[in-house]
């Protein structure tokens, strides 16, 4: 991809990723947050975190299925935005919802499974954000870095679990997110099993190879 195309692609992603925050600011300034503004903000920020997390997990499946790889350059951007929104989500909970009442906050982290897993997800995201720069990737070495960043699969699971555990019966959105996550992880699993040679390769699939994958395959064959 040309430098120009890369910059415009990233600008578009910046715009999309910032829009929930801008919406929140706009509604805040125009008194449009509804009857329960704090709950509205918490939920909007939580939803955005989960969506960005799933978006960052969707890039590799696109490469596996379509053989395209220009989107891979967005991984860091989407991951960092997910971390950014998770921090905002967490900050609203501490500073606005509970106003630094540590006597309420600490027991909640320990006693409420949905808070515990949310906290765990945020904690695990932190080292990934810190090591997201190219410099850090070099310092860690590609192999270590890749292994560390596999934590994002677990973080995705914890994010969905957090949502499943906080809603009341009759709310179906978390199941939708769970299904999407299952598909995204399932494609990776299938690709891995296929590369290990555990699966036959359907003929219709031949078109969808990336050069990197083709090289892998040659070695495998």
């Amino acid at each position: 991809m040309s430098r120009r195309a890369c910059i415009s692609l990233k600008s578009v992603v910046w715009g999309i990723a910032l829009s929930p925050l801008l919406l929140l600011l706009y509604r805040f300034l125009t008194n449009g947050l509804g009857a329960n503004p704090i709950s509205y903000a918490t939920n909007l920020l939580g939803d955005t975190t989960l969506r960005l997390l799933l978006a960052s997990l969707a890039l590799t499946p696109l490469r596996i299925l379509l053989g395209i790889s220009w989107q891979m350059s967005l991984r860091r951007l989407l991951g960092l935005f997910a971390f950014f929104y998770a921090c905002l989500h967490f900050t609203v909970w501490i500073a606005v919802d509970h106003f630094f009442e540590w006597g309420e906050l600490i027991p909640d982290i320990v006693k409420r499974p949905y808070i515990t897993v949310g906290m765990l997800a945020l904690t695990l995201l932190t080292p990934l954000a810190v090591t997201s720069t190219s410099g850090m990737a070099k310092r860690l070495g590609g192999r270590n870095w890749r292994q560390l960043h596999r934590l994002v699969y677990l973080i995705g699971l914890l994010g969905v679990l957090h949502y499943l555990w906080l809603v009341k019966k009759g709310v179906n959105d978390p199941y939708l997110y769970a299904a999407i996550l299952a598909v995204l992880l399932g494609i990776r699993l299938w690709d891995w099993a296929r590369r290990e040679g555990w699966l036959g390769r359907p003929a219709w699939f031949r078109g969808g190879y990336s050069p990197a994958r083709a090289a892998d395959d040659m070695r495998g064959d």
Binding site: N36, I38, E104, P107, R112, P113, Y114, W165
Partner: peptide, 10 residues
């Protein structure tokens, strides 16, 4: 799943 000690008055 959550505390009932406090509430937010709308």
């Amino acid at each position: 799943r959550w505390s009932q000690a406090t509430e937010r008055r709308i």
